[in-house]
């Protein structure tokens, strides 16, 4: 709270120094805009629609990235096949994907597709690296003790990749939100947070832009913390037997 207070104070002082709300609104103006925006029912419809799109993109990207990372870790051929593709996806500007997706697929799916493309390489890289670095000693142990593939997966590979998975999740939630909202702004999705941002921008209502941004940051943080809490809970339940 102290840290948040310091940064809010920095923001307020900077806004007073600038003296132009259109360039940098004051904290109280942003809070007012946030309350005003939050009071409208259509805001929550937009938030709901954006949450659905982001969630869809992150979950599909997460599953695809994990599967891709795992198969690439176990198969040299698949690694050679998919790694160039993942490298291209990583290096391509998000805006290029958004514009191309805008041409290729229905506008409502563009934010989903964008989040998917951002999240997939993050999970692929993290899961691939974690599996490649699985403790060889434990794999030898599994061989000696005739552990089945399922047991090796649950007792060695998954615990080995768990930290990398959590790290990937932390990065991808924030990145997914950024990319998805950017897609909504460019595609001007009607019922979306990006749509709200775009409307605020064309009416030069900077406080409103800040209010929508604060909303995205809060939602992203809630998503991230909830996902990590879920993973921890699942891990604790799995290991509960002793």
């Amino acid at each position: 709270m102290t840290v948040a207070g310091i940064w809010l104070a920095v923001w307020e002082i900077a806004a007073i120094c600038v003296g132009e709300g259109i360039l940098l609104p004051r904290v109280e103006d942003t809070v007012s805009a946030l309350i005003r925006t939050g009071a409208k029912s259509e805001t929550w419809l937009s938030v709901g629609a954006s949450v659905l799109r982001v969630t869809g993109g992150i979950i599909t990207g997460m599953l695809t990235g994990c599967v891709l990372g795992a198969v690439c870790a176990f198969s040299r051929f698949l690694d050679d096949l998919f790694t160039p593709l993942v490298t291209v996806i990583k290096a391509t500007p998000v805006a290029s994907f958004i514009i191309l997706a805008f041409v290729w697929i229905p506008v409502n799916l563009v934010p989903v597709f964008t989040a998917f493309l951002i999240v997939t390489p993050i999970f692929h890289t993290n899961v691939f690296t974690a599996l490649k670095n699985t403790d060889r000693n434990m794999l030898e142990l599994a061989q000696v003790y005739n552990m089945s593939f399922i047991r090796r997966l649950t007792e060695i590979y998954i615990p080995s990749a768990a930290a990398a998975f959590t790290s990937a999740l932390t990065s991808s939630v924030g990145m997914g939100w950024k990319a998805s909202v950017a897609a909504e702004v460019i595609c001007r999705n009607r019922q979306s947070i990006g749509g709200g941002l775009y409307s605020a921008k064309i009416s030069l209502d900077t406080a409103d832009v800040f209010a929508w941004t604060v909303l995205v940051v809060v939602l992203s943080l809630v998503f991230e913390k909830s996902a990590i809490a879920l993973i921890k809970r699942a891990g604790a339940r799995r290991n509960g037997d002793g």
């Binding site: 003790y145 552990m147 047991r151 007792e155 060695i156 891990g235 290991n239 037997d241 002793g242």
Partner: peptide, 15 residues
């Protein structure tokens, strides 16, 4: 040892 498992779990993990 399986660091995420308890003592009992370490034995159960190998069947």
């Amino acid at each position: 040892l399986f660091m995420h498992r308890t003592a009992l779990g370490n034995l159960k993990a190998v069947g």
